[in-house]
Write a protein that binds this DNA or RNA. Structure first.
Lengths: 208, 208
DNA sequence: TCAAAAAATGAACTATGTTCACGACCTGGT
DNA sequence: ACCAGGTCGTGAACATAGTTCATTTTTTGA
């Protein structure tokens, strides 16, 4: 009984789904979102084009699955980095980890932001949840830096902070001509976060 | 001599170019980058599909022309806002103007960042220049805020600052589910810039 | 006035996501 | 063991893109 090679039954469909996500993930990691083609995907998975559409509604859903995995890896990287970090260094560590992740997995990371749903389509709940989990990672460190701040305000500012760091990383890695030199980008991000941390301290001091 | 309606000679080609850019600009402003289709464009311009390719190398070139105009409008908005602003408010004014512009011309503004050249292709020099002009707008205000900073450092930080503001605006207007409430986004951007300005003051104070 | 050069034309080509009629296959009941 | 019914996979065909190119039309310059 070689149930390993010739799986049958309800698991068959799930197996195809997993295989397609795996291949799509590799393709996006290697060639970016634009490198993902339905026909190539089918060929690599050894199935017909139409089979993709029995496993997924469309390529968008498949891309969201790949993006969810990328988000999960990013979360893991942030958690690991934050695990062994001083509280006052948490912001620096997070920003730097984000930059490192973007560099290490640039095409996959880019796919998170390049991908657009067709106009009017709402992303599925499971994807929204994955995104929110990422923002929530920033909440704990921020609460140690900003005690006495309400949940609402902290959550909003966590998002703002993430957005600012993301902007610096995104435009810094954009290579429309000459990408920002790595060392310069490192320094600029570190400087920005330091300045923000200083500004936050002043903000707190004013309230005392 | 109705040279107005039936222009002939060397200007004819230039006329078609201008018409196509105008129509593409309107299309992108109304329906975003994804709404720009070669066939619709030709129909609206009253020419054959092939004529587009006698006026431009490809649609990418046309899009870059439209984007250059958007950059120019953004520059104008920044200049006007900075014209009547106190030096110490320059950063706030710029950030707010950028947010207002993005809101007022969201599809056009989005096209600036959504558009991707085919891999390996370098953007033409005239487009690079247009982009750099934008960053240079931030240099003058920054030099008043950070006297004694070298040209290099100021230019680099201007870019970083722009990137941070852009990140907050870009992710704030992203409406993958529920766009950030306008008032909240206003406040968050104002808060971030205030914190950065405070942090910059501390930075300066340390050096004295 | 006309021949050569330039531009415009639009059908055709390529590439891509998606659908669908058909056939193969699995499942459960007998 | 076998069959009926449903599910799944197939790949040709469809829809929609950008782009090309042989042909036709227009413009130019002598």
């Amino acid at each position: 009984m070689n149930e390993k090679t010739t799986e049958t039954g309800a698991g068959r469909r799930e197996l195809l789904r997993a295989r397609l996500i795996d291949i799509a993930q590799e393709t996006i990691a290697a060639q970016g979102l634009a490198g993902l083609k339905a026909r190539d995907l089918a060929a690599a998975a050894g199935c017909a084009i139409g089979a993709i559409y029995t496993a997924f509604d469309d390529l968008d859903e498949l891309i969201l699955r790949v993006n969810a995995r990328t988000l999960a890896r990013l979360e893991t990287a942030l958690d690991r980095a934050l695990g062994d970090a001083e509280a006052e260094q948490a912001l620096q560590v997070m920003a730097r980890t984000y930059l490192d992740f973007a560099r290490a997995e640039e095409p996959s990371w880019r796919a998170l932001f390049e991908h657009r749903l067709p106009p009017g389509a709402a992303p599925p709940q499971w994807y929204v949840d994955a995104r929110n989990r990422l923002f929530n990672r920033l909440d704990a460190p921020l609460s140690r830096l900003l005690p006495g701040t309400g949940h609402w305000a902290r959550e909003a500012f966590a998002r703002t902070l993430f957005s600012a760091v993301h902007g610096v990383v995104a435009l810094g890695l954009e290579e429309k001509i000459a990408e920002t030199p790595p060392k310069l980008l490192d320094d600029q991000l570190e400087k920005l976060v330091r300045i923000i941390a200083d500004g936050l301290m002043m903000e707190s001091a004013r309230l005392i």
